[in-house]
Nucleic acid binder design. Structure first.
Lengths: 343, 343
DNA sequence: CCGGCTGGATGAAACGTTTTAGTCGCTATA
DNA sequence: TATAGCGACTAAAACGTTTCATCCAGCCGG
């Protein structure tokens, strides 16, 4: 009952092997009576298609992969959910791979995915530099869609949120509040999003021209723990060098900072204002509700998956597209208090 | 350059096809000179193994699947990370599938996984009832390990945390604080964890015998939004019927309750005490730090993966094992305040 | 009554591996 | 000197599909 193949089904139903295949793939092309006989045989033997053989014949699998920087980051889980919807609707399967922000792990995953001849890859690459393994995939004709990573090259589709704009929004807001010593927290800088958000923030300070100072504290990862450690260092500074506001590369960092700051007995936003990035569900539920830059996360995933499937279908006739969404600043208590000017 | 197969590599290197395979799989068995020639041919042609063909031959794939109730739930992302470590160390690949607590989706995933002839499946099943699709996998000889789901049947391994004990711990704590009207929030009850935690809570109330009352409010899912909605209903009750403490089936629900309660101008824990479950990272960062029942999440994943691989290796000689971890109550501000007795 | 057409079924090739049995030339042993 | 043994390599089978070229019977129009 366990391991029947198509040939045994055929014998059991008294038809040829090709007919069984037809029942499976083009049921209309076989006479109702025969079809029923085959179907009966299938259930009777507990036959289950062997996807390996199918793939081998087809030249590619029916799974789509998404490679994210961190599975545990709510930003990515939302993107994944969006992509999942579209992919499953198309009868395919989405597999989630976690690079953890590590170049080597990313490469390893891409190698495995190439071996698997996946139908396509959605990826938020670790670095901005060229990723040879990714080029290899594209050479082989496997569609690749860049997720949340800029306008990319002409050789692939991409969906993104304008991170430079996001950084600018956050920083303009803090400058509006009168802050003069502001810190940007995030890292590693090899992560493009981290760099872009910083670029936007720096540009905003520059343009404002009021001589505000933007310090940068680079963290080793985008986690709550990293945020807490970074805050520890900032708070060790003498009060007059200490920044009065912190803009964090994501909400996890921001939550870490929030924890550490309040643990030290300082108040948010009275002593330190905080703005995060991503507007994850928990930003609103934090000890002090967190101001944050919101991105259309699920939509990002959906759109990416759509572009991918589109490319997988249309083959050569495909023209690469680049979709850019606009972020939006959500002001909450962690930064909203009207303040006197500071220096 | 893109699509070379083993045969072309062989021709290019002037050897037989079998020799190339040997270079790939048993490099020591081929003479160094020949080996080098083959290796050169491989890089020159950009050859990449075709995993479908490999699998077909081997009879099973080298990927392990984990089917979780909710990818976006931090509890599961941690379990996934634990499993990932072990699986990748073994040179295999972990694919994450999301049942979303939906029976039909779970079945669909299992069907696909059976077609893929995966090496094994880690799963937190949606219901406690029998899942025929799961039995089918086992019949076929695909190892299945139950994650976070009780002592299970003898036909498979399992790892779990004692949810009944967890419910008991939480409830004992609340009873110790003198609460007499307590609500249990969670759902759907078809999710085993939800039912078990409730069972533990009910048992604690029963044993205490002080006539405390345990209301149950069933939610449609284990999300922040569901928690908020449930809280809305509870708070609509007249003050003297309203529970003074709430025990939530997970932290997401608890965070939702916390948000709604504070939004209504009530204080936690003065007006309503809250205890959550899972002790996710954000429990500590919430507006009022959340008491919660902690589970060894990553270890759960690691152990599950180890059991799975063990079974996959040893085949028939395998004896199923059931590992149970103990949960631990973490008391924080949301429930810790010493209180006068209530009624 | 014949030729062509059509719906329904068949047989065989092909996909790219891994593995097993076997071949071949050498060297060490009796 | 025959032979057993060994190292290095080869040839071919097998894994389970899908697809394509055939084939066959029946039916229609002429």
């Amino acid at each position: 009952m366990a391991g029947a193949n198509i040939k045994q089904v055929a014998r059991h139903a008294g038809v040829s092997l090709g007919t069984v295949s037809n029942v499976l793939n083009r049921p209309d092309s076989v006479a109702p009576a025969t079809r029923q006989r085959v179907l009966d045989a299938i259930t009777e033997l507990g036959y289950v298609r062997n996807d390996s053989a199918r793939q081998l014949r087809a030249g590619h699998s029916r799974t789509v992969a998404i490679v994210v920087l961190d599975v545990a980051n709510p930003f990515f889980t939302d993107v994944v959910r969006g992509a999942e919807q579209v992919v499953e609707e198309a009868g395919a399967m989405l597999v989630v791979c976690n690079s953890g922000g590590d170049n080597a792990r990313e490469r390893r995953h891409l190698e495995l995915l190439e071996e698997q001849r996946v139908r396509g890859v959605l990826i938020t690459p670790v670095g901005h530099g060229p990723q040879p393994q990714l080029e290899k995939l594209i050479d082989r004709g496997i569609p690749v869609v860049l997720v949340d990573r800029g306008t990319g090259r002409a050789s692939r589709c991409s969906v993104a949120v304008d991170d430079v704009l996001g950084g600018r929004l956050a920083m303009d807001h803090l400058l509006d509040q009168g802050h003069q010593r502001i810190a940007y927290l995030g890292g590693p800088l090899s992560i493009a999003q981290v760099a872009d958000r910083h670029a936007g923030a720096a540009a905003a300070v520059e343009e404002r021209g009021t001589g505000a100072e933007l310090q940068v504290a680079v963290t080793t990862s985008l986690t709550v723990a990293a945020g807490r450690r970074a805050a520890e260092q900032l708070l060790a500074l003498p009060a007059r060098q200490r920044p009065t506001a912190v803009f964090c590369a994501n909400d996890l960092i921001a939550l870490g900072v929030l924890q550490e700051v309040t643990a030290r007995g300082l108040r948010v936003p009275a002593d330190v204002s905080i703005v995060g990035y991503d507007d994850i569900e928990f930003a609103d539920a934090a000890a002090v509700p967190l101001s944050s830059v919101r991105q259309p996360r699920e939509q990002l995933g959906r759109t990416a998956a759509q572009l991918l499937l589109e490319e997988a279908e249309s083959g050569d006739t495909h023209r690469h597209r680049h979709v850019v969404f606009q972020p939006e600043l959500v002001v909450r208590r962690s930064s909203e208090q009207p303040r006197r000017a500071r220096r």
